[in-house]
Design a protein around this nucleic acid. Structure first.
Lengths: 128, 128
DNA sequence: CTGGGCGTTCAAGTACGGTTGAAGTCAAGA
DNA sequence: TCTTGACTTCAACCGTACTTGAACGCCCAG
C-alpha cells in the first residue's frame, strides 16, 4: 500500500544523489543549501544528507528561475511548505509559481500596451 | 498634421535625456549602447546623440528582462526593427516579447504539472 | 582665461548565480 | 596501516548587468 502516512523520508541522499536526480552540479546543491532553498541534515562525519524533498524543490526552482524569479523569491515561496509536504502542498507551490510568472507576463503585457499608446513618439511621426 | 512620413527623429537626445525618459541611469544607457541594444550617433565633440527610438527600446527591454530575457536576446529581437520603426513594427516586437514570455510560463506550467505526477516521491508516501 | 557643467573613456566594484580548485577530513578496502 | 574516493570548507573566479570613480575633453559665461 502506498498510504500517505509513512513518516519521514529519512535524509539518506548525498549531495551527488541530489545533484544527479535534479540535473544540477553538486556545487549548485551546496549553493542552494547555503541560500536556504533546500535543507540538509548532517551525518556524524559532517556530510550532508537530503531527502527527496530537496530534489523536487530544485526541480521546481530551476523552472521558476527561467521565468525571472530569483533564488530568494523562490526560497520565500518554499517557506510556505511544511517539513513533509503533501501533494496538495506541492500543487499549491506550483500554483504560486505559475501565478507569479503569469503576474510578470501580465505586467509585461500591460506595460507594452501602455507603451504602444505612447510609442507614437518613437515612430516616424510627431517629432515633438 | 501628425502624418507618419516625417523622416528621421534626427538624434538630438543626450545620454541624460534618454536616461531620464527611460528611467534608467546614464551609465545604463552607455552600457546598452555598448551591448548593441540602442544606437547613437556622435557629435563633432564625440558626444552621443540618440533619437526617441532609444527610449522605447530601453523601456521595452527593461520589461522583457523581468520575464527572464537577457540583454543579448532582447538585442536580437530588436535587430528585426528597421531604422524608423512604425507602430506596427513596435506592436510586432511587443507580440514577440509577450509570446516569448508566455511560452516560458507555458513551459513552467507544463513542467510543474509533469512534476506533480512524479512528486509523489517527494511527499510523505512511497519511500521508494 | 578660468570656472562650471556636461560629456568622454576605462578600470574597478557590486550583486546574483553559480563553478573551480586547494587543502583537509572521514570511512572503507587492500 | 596506507591509500583511495567521496565528502568538507573556503577563497577565488566566471558571466551578466550594471554602478562608481578617476582622469580627462569640450564649450560657454563671466
Amino acid at each position: 500500500m502506498t498510504t500517505a502516512t509513512q513518516a519521514a523520508p529519512s535524509f539518506t541522499l548525498t549531495v551527488k544523489d541530489v545533484a544527479h536526480a535534479s540535473h544540477v552540479a553538486p556545487s549548485a546543491v551546496r549553493f542552494y543549501e547555503d541560500q536556504g532553498l533546500i535543507q540538509a541534515r548532517r551525518t556524524t562525519g559532517n556530510q550532508r544528507r537530503f531527502d527527496e524533498n530537496a530534489i523536487c524543490r530544485i526541480r521546481f526552482a530551476r523552472r521558476a528561475q527561467r521565468v525571472g524569479l530569483t533564488v530568494r523569491e523562490i526560497a520565500d515561496i518554499f517557506q510556505a511548505l511544511p517539513e513533509q509536504p503533501s501533494a496538495q502542498d506541492w500543487a499549491r507551490v506550483a500554483d504560486s509559481l505559475v501565478a507569479e510568472a503569469e503576474a510578470h507576463v501580465a505586467d509585461l503585457r500591460h506595460d507594452l500596451d501602455a507603451l504602444q499608446t505612447v510609442t507614437i513618439r518613437c515612430t516616424a511621426g510627431t517629432v515633438r
